[in-house]
Design a protein around this nucleic acid. Structure first.
Lengths: 190, 190
DNA sequence: ACAGAGTGATTGATCGGTCACTCATTAAAC
DNA sequence: GTTTAATGAGTGACCGATCAATCACTCTGT
């Protein structure tokens, strides 16, 4: 029984992810989401009281997954550059393997449907990333730029590379990932 | 008469720009756009047969304006780096001075409401930019990366810097623009 | 072993409201 | 006087959300 509950909730989130990304928030009806998830229209509202709660829940889940993947094996790297590169690869590989989630985050990270509360809670999971940049500035690994500028350039460039790989379809994806990191590292390093 | 016609069409585009950016495509009703523009609900459909025609027309206008601003005074620059920097500054300054248009382009450049036809027509106005990158690769000013990767990184980074300036509100905007270009130039230059 | 009351998840018909778009009428321009 | 632009009430379709009925399943007393 518990199993079924989780099944339906997961199915609803998966359906919402697909449809919100394809057609936007207002462009997707709750009925379409329910149908795609294989449940009745009323069932959606048992799990998510409103349509906004659904997209906020989805955003929370996806961003949480990304932050966990992003930080994986970073601390076991030896040099600072290797740590940053590990994070870069984690980010890009997640984006390639999870196109739908990647697009969803891009579309809705600054949309009005995501509440500031959700945004704040999610932000806390990325403290380790900001700390790594602060550390790099402190020990002189990074150039003398504002930390928020470095984090933004790093994160957005990783998204640019995912876009490039998915859209331009280079023969060698790893080469593209390497090239992308090289550009960013040359740019932000001391 | 011609004047009034242009007035109403411009008012509709301006209202649509504001509302689409704030609330999304499906989140904005044509009635709201008409009201904001100060015309009757039926008038909108005299100028744009469907809501999709309206957003496509708007996208065409805004992207066209951006491409014209972007290329301004670029050819009068002496060195290759100066040409690229001119384009960078044009891009960032336009973004800062036209926040609403800047946000609109970011939100709708890969949305399903913009037809592939609109996208193709708009793309033609950016040929000069791709040519400049190809030129830089040919004469060894730029590092050996795929041209599409360089154009994407350059364009997206300029957007990142506009975001940074608007959101983080640094005391010295020109410094931020300079820093941003320095990072990108160090990254993509030979 | 089993009847049947109890429980909470699930359902889909239904609701008031809003949507994009139409069209008969009016007003303006020449 | 004719043409052209502008109007806004009206249209059927669809929206998010509700809720009484139904369902699968558990538990208890015999």
């Amino acid at each position: 029984m518990k199993k079924q509950v989780e099944d339906k909730k997961a199915a609803l989130l998966e359906a919402a992810l697909k449809l919100f990304t394809e057609r936007g928030f207002h462009g997707t009806s709750t009925a379409q989401i329910s149908k795609e998830a294989g449940v009745a229209t009323g069932t959606l509202f048992n799990y998510f009281p409103t349509k906004e709660d659904l997209i906020n829940g989805l955003y929370f889940e996806v961003k949480g997954e990304l932050s966990r993947k992003m930080g994986k094996d970073v601390q076991t790297q030896k040099t600072y550059e290797e740590k940053l590169k590990k994070m870069w690869c984690n980010l890009v590989e997640w984006g390639i393997e999870n196109q739908d989630k990647f697009l969803f985050v891009g579309q809705f990270c600054s949309s009005p449907y995501i509440t500031s509360h959700t945004r704040e809670v999610v932000m806390e999971e990325y403290v380790f990333f900001h700390d790594l940049v602060t550390e790099g500035l402190a020990n002189g690994e990074l150039g003398d730029y504002p930390p928020e500028m470095i984090t933004s350039i790093f994160y957005q460039s990783s998204r640019t590379i995912v876009d490039y790989i998915l859209y331009s379809e280079p023969q060698d994806r790893n080469k593209a990932i390497e090239d992308g990191f090289q550009i960013v590292w040359k740019g932000v390093a001391k």
